[in-house]
């Protein structure tokens, strides 16, 4: 298998007032296509920052990041937005669904940036909601869904554009055990059945067990 994601000597620091806070320190990582990797580590170890850099929602202070041979770290904001739309699917800890849109409309949101027709969009959304077993709740608003169902809608939104990589930041962090297990099974299915490369950040060793590979971070370095 070839490396889909290559993180090369990446450092990242944040400026808070006059302080420079280092988060990642000369870190390198490679993730193969079709891999399911879990990033673990204590709070402040830099795992979410690394995930954000891979997903192209933040830029490294130093080093390079390649995803499917595109140097993500060199793209400007506008190019990054387009790249993210077609290559990355996001799953957040707190679901981050738009409350005024139904499940269907939330899943449809990323497709509005494509050239798909209304009927094609409908087909894609129904397929995605079917994958997460929520076909019967597509007209429900987020407040009418349970936490687990909301997260499944968020996963459907993440996969509806058929992205190369699925990044998940503590996807089970806000859920009870049963709902968390359902989400992990779903992510595993997306990896195995739909060949999605999954990068997941988690605190939970049980959740991390779902991944093929677990990498630990501490103080901005892989250990």
């Amino acid at each position: 298998m070839s490396a889909l994601i290559k993180v090369e000597n990446v450092s990242k620091s944040y400026k808070r007032d006059s302080f420079e806070i280092p988060v990642l320190n000369n870190l390198s990582l490679s993730v193969d296509e079709g891999e399911f990797i879990a990033l673990m580590g204590p709070s402040g170890s830099g795992k979410t920052t690394l995930l954000n850099l891979i997903a192209g929602i933040d830029k490294p202070s130093e080093g390079k990041i390649f995803v499917n041979e595109t140097e993500v770290s060199s793209l400007n904001e506008s190019a990054l937005a387009k790249w993210r739309a077609s290559n990355i699917g996001f799953v957040f800890q707190f679901y981050n669904l738009i409350p005024v849109l139904t499940a269907f409309e939330n899943v449809e949101l990323p497709l509005l940036l494509t050239h798909l027709s209304k009927s094609e969009r409908k087909e894609h959304v129904e397929t995605a909601l079917n994958v997460v077993s929520l076909s019967d709740r597509m007209d429900h608003y987020p407040k009418q869904l349970s936490g687990g169902q909301e997260q499944r809608v968020a996963i459907a939104r993440a996969v509806v554009t058929d992205p190369l990589v699925l990044v998940a930041d503590e996807p089970t962090g806000d859920l009870d055990k049963n709902s968390a297990d359902e989400i992990l099974i779903l992510l595993e299915r997306l990896n195995k059945e739909f060949k999605k490369t999954v990068v997941m950040v988690t605190h939970d060793p049980h959740a991390a067990e779902t991944a093929h590979l677990i990498r630990h971070l501490d103080k901005g370095e892989l250990v």
């Binding site: 904001e77 937005a81 387009k82 940036l113």
Partner: peptide, 14 residues
């Protein structure tokens, strides 16, 4: 603010 961040993440532009 969070919703705008989500939309930007999904690829929506300024």
């Amino acid at each position: 603010t969070r919703e705008y961040a989500v939309m930007k993440t999904l690829g929506f532009s300024g």
